[in-house]
Design a protein around this nucleic acid. Structure first.
Lengths: 210, 210, 210, 210
DNA sequence: CATGAATGAGCATTCATTCAT
DNA sequence: TATGAATGAATGCTCATTCAT
């Protein structure tokens, strides 16, 4: 998941560390703990212990325990969106792009289960999540898809009698729907098969039949 | 508050005490609360308040807060298995029975979301769950299916080159897999369609092709 | 301060203890601590330690640390109002009654410095204090004076060209004004002199001159 | 942010460093904050934020958060005493001087409420306050009055059968006593009236009657 | 059976203060 | 002189659980 971004990030070797090491230790500690427990049953004491960092330091870098989770999610999402944007480069035609979008989304969900758990299970019931800055990253992700759909409608590849936003929701919902059980039951995902099936069904619904 | 109910209940003096009314009040209270919150964020105080029962009484009837959840789940499972057993009566042929099994399982998951949530989300991460008495009920449920599969293999309806236990896991996994997103995202389930699709895929995989 | 109320309270010797002993221990502990420190710098740990009671028990009897203070104040106020009501019995004429009201108010402020500190210094900056149930007791106290003023206006002893509420505020303000320095600097109060001076000034302002 | 100010300030190279600008920023910040909150509920973080200064810098210039308050109070007191000393110049006779002393004291209390709050409310309960260096300034202030009283006794204007220290305490107490309610309840002070009344009472008590 | 009282361990969070640079 | 990082000790408060009656 970090392959592309490294190439893109142009931080010179001499640059200042930007994120203080302890801040990093904290986020990493939370990521590790999230592998086994859900966020609510992870305590700040546990996080600080695992990070080998003073508990109070969490509150210097993050406003909140919840703020810490948002920060972790935000990091993930940034990478997620950056990678996806990169992956879509050079692909022509809305249909091909959607295929790629679906495949890549499933791939990234599959690749980092902690990210997926946060994104699909933890943050949703947070009050005010949908107003949060973090959610803006999700909207950016959704925006990527939206552009493709609009391109597809303009080019005539996608039928124009369904609201683009409905199509977008359908696709995003389908992706989540497919990945969720694997994430909860900790199954492997057959990325190719899942993407193919999903798109197969999708395109017979949304492509314009002549 | 509910004291007088005793007078009204026509339980004969000779009958076994069955479940004491307070025990029932507690389990019912938990069920109600589980509709809106996840188990960890429900407090014993809350449960006792909703049950109109003293908090300490929970510990007379259940060893634990967790034990209470297990008891609730156990009740559900008992009914679940009893119903399923009944539903399968009079159906002939392994394939038909599996079809019924799948349809009914989905139906019961769909019907009682609280039960489904406990079963599919809450108890799994409990340490020692799989050694628990409650889990024995789940094994009974799985056993029902196992018998059908073995019957199918014997009759030649089901291929014999796959271990029956693998087939059982496949089927149970598929059912959960299909129901879970609906439970989490609180969607409706199209029982017929879901059961049909699932079986369609299933049978082309596991039935013997001549 | 407890002399009159004992006579008034009709609790039979056989009655149930009404307030649990631990609840009492907690309120008493806070009263003791308030003698030397201001409320904000008293910790719940300190209170429980002094009360020989578990810290969590505070929260069984009071919703809040602040709630505990309100309860203490409320107790005081109840007594305060009851005593004052009793003291005014059998006194005739608004002027005499006011004289008594002033004298007694100063007396009770003087008598229990902890009460006075809470009442005059602590609770005022609490957000929502003036909507609190406790404040209703204060209004009752103010109401006592209001009745006297209205009686005085009706009888012609008090001039009717000033709003009764203004007169009430003036008197209450003057009493507090006079008591406060003694409370803060922990001086003694010359009850008679203070009451006389205050009333002297007061009556030349508010009595009707023929 | 304020770096350039150094260039503009025309302090000659030879001059003593006077107060470093950051030290000043800190004390000023505290003064501002004290306008709205009491000292205990002001945090060092808040002070440094308001001062646009690093939090740790507080501890370079002051041993303590409390030390900072003392420093602020000390500054005030220095000015207070200096002004008072100046105000008393050219006034003849102990009685006139006391009148001026009282009027001016009230005036300065009225003029700067922050100073008054610190002086009359905050520092008193500090352990060790009365041994502190800051308290020496207060003694200097009291000393000014003491000199006047002794002058009055010598000249026969003030009765000599009361210990001068008692007279001093009486006067200082009376001033504080009068100013305090206005400071707490944030009333205006009628400087002339208050000084006149206070002196009227004072002189009929302490002046020698022939 | 039922309950009011009690509690230890833990929770997220705050704060004054220190330290290395 | 200045600062970012770090921290120990609290703080108010909650909760599952126990116990005497």
């Amino acid at each position: 998941m970090e392959k592309n971004i490294k190439i893109l990030s142009a931080e010179p070797a001499s640059a200042k560390p930007s994120t203080p090491p302890s801040r990093l230790k904290i986020t990493e500690a939370l990521k590790v703990l999230l592998r086994d427990k859900d966020f609510n049953s992870i305590t700040t004491a546990e996080i600080s212990r695992m990070a080998h960092v003073n508990e109070a330091l969490i509150y210097r870098y993050f406003i909140d325990k919840r703020g810490l989770l948002h920060a972790v999610l935000s990091d993930y999402l940034q990478e997620f969106v950056a990678n996806l944007t990169f992956d879509l480069k050079g692909i022509h035609g809305a249909i091909n792009k959607i295929q790629k979008f679906v495949w890549a989304s499933i791939h990234y969900y599959d690749d980092d289960r902690v990210f997926s758990k946060i994104q699909l299970l933890e943050v949703r019931n947070f009050p005010g999540y949908f107003d949060s800055e973090t959610y803006q990253m999700v909207r950016k992700y959704a925006g990527l898809l939206m552009e493709i759909i609009e391109e597809g409608i303009e080019s005539g590849d996608i039928r124009n009698d369904i609201a683009p936003s409905s199509i977008r929701q359908l696709i995003l919902g389908a992706i989540e729907h497919c990945c969720l059980p694997a994430i909860i039951f900790d199954h492997k995902i057959d990325n190719d098969a899942m993407a193919d099936n999903l798109c197969e069904i999708l395109f017979h619904g949304i492509t314009r039949k002549i």
